Simulated assay, not measured.
Amino acid sequence: MVQGALGLASGALVGFSLGLVGGGGSILAVPLMVYVVGVPDAHVAIGTSAIAVAANAAVNLSNHARGGTVVWSCALMFAAAGIVGAFTGSIFGKMLDGQKLLALFALLMLVIAVLMLKTRSRIGLPDVKMNWTNMPAITGLGLATGTLSGFFGIGGGFLIVPALMLATGMSIMNAVSSSLVAVTAFGLTTAASYAWSGLISWGLAGLFIAGGVAGGLIGTRSARLLSARRGALNIVFAGVIILVALYMLARNLYGS
């Protein structure tokens, strides 16, 4: 019962993060499963988080789509390119020691956070659409982000949001909303690979999904409020990444 309650609460936090910043699903889910819920195998935690995050991202995507902030043309092309990378990356990720995977993941998060803080004052272009000019960047960054997503066993939102902004020049609110298309796709691709290897706890995944639905509704509403304040969403986005990355590094360095 205690593990079930912790799973629901952790899922709510994951859903809130996905709704708020379009990322943080697996970045939060993996350490929560390992350090809070008590999943002993890092690879099972990664596989379980992938399916849970994909489901929660799909629910949050519908919330953002109703608000009209998803740029579908860019999001679908980015996701399509990334699926290929996610499948390839997941194969290599399973070959690496679980704890080393978490440590490398944390270092990557810190790099992303610094980049987001540097661009916090950028407003973004209105009415962005995919065209022949930005298609190569969307496809290339989608493939690269998908590979990293599959390798680290993450939905990839914290990588996808800055990648979409870089490729198209869209605002962070549009990037957060659009990223959920790719988070869903990458998560399902990674989950399929881990499920094939028997590395998913389905009961725990169900609890995470249930908790995430409620958390996602609150997160989406919060994102809309923060997006009206210039740079606020970027700062929150980067702050969440830094805190979780430092925690993951500390646990890896000093033990559980």
Score class of each variant (00 low, 15 high):
152 F>D: 12
152 F>Q: 13
152 F>G: 14
154 I>C: 08
158 F>V: 12
161 V>N: 13
164 L>K: 06
166 L>Q: 11
166 L>E: 09
167 A>D: 13
167 A>G: 10
170 M>Y: 07
170 M>N: 05
171 S>F: 05
171 S>P: 03
171 S>W: 02
172 I>F: 07
174 N>I: 01
174 N>S: 14
175 A>I: 11
176 V>M: 09
178 S>Y: 03
179 S>I: 01
179 S>D: 01
184 T>H: 01
185 A>D: 01
185 A>P: 00
188 L>R: 00
188 L>F: 15
189 T>R: 02
191 A>H: 03
193 S>R: 15
193 S>P: 04
195 A>R: 11
195 A>I: 11
195 A>E: 12
196 W>E: 15
197 S>Y: 11
197 S>L: 12
197 S>T: 07
198 G>R: 11
198 G>H: 14
200 I>N: 11
201 S>E: 15
201 S>M: 13
202 W>A: 15
205 A>V: 10
207 L>A: 10
209 I>A: 05
210 A>W: 05
211 G>Y: 05
211 G>R: 04
212 G>K: 08
213 V>D: 05
215 G>L: 09
215 G>K: 03
217 L>W: 13
218 I>H: 04
218 I>Y: 09
219 G>P: 07
219 G>Y: 03
219 G>E: 07
220 T>V: 15
222 S>W: 06
222 S>A: 15
224 R>S: 14
225 L>F: 09
225 L>E: 11
226 L>H: 09
227 S>F: 02
